[in-house]
């Protein structure tokens, strides 16, 4: 029981990629989620230790454009929320 609580607390306090403001940089810590989506994110180079910069939101606020490994990538907010980062 305690362990579950602890894990929940950790996810609550850690920052996720969708919280970055335009121009802000962060380092990727972990990619959660599962299945094809997570694999695709890993393959696109969203792996631990990678530096990622938030470029801009789409005019309707979602999806969001990022720069990593020298290229530009668009992620929906729901997808970015699965990526834990540290500033």
């Amino acid at each position: 029981m305690n362990i579950t609580l602890g894990a929940q607390q950790q996810t609550l306090t850690s920052k996720t990629l969708d919280q970055l403001a335009a121009g802000q940089m962060a380092t990727i810590r972990r990619v959660s989620g599962e299945g094809p989506l997570r694999r695709r994110m890993l393959e696109m180079g969203i792996t631990r230790g990678t530096t990622i910069e938030m470029i801009r939101r789409s005019p309707f606020g979602d999806p969001i454009e990022y720069r990593l490994r020298g290229y530009h990538l668009s992620l929906r907010r729901s997808e970015a929320r699965l990526i834990e980062i540290e500033l």
Partner: peptide, 12 residues
């Protein structure tokens, strides 16, 4: 059914 991933490159 979850939406298909939208992880999309914005090529130069």
């Amino acid at each position: 059914q979850p939406p298909a991933p939208f992880v999309m490159e914005l090529p130069p």
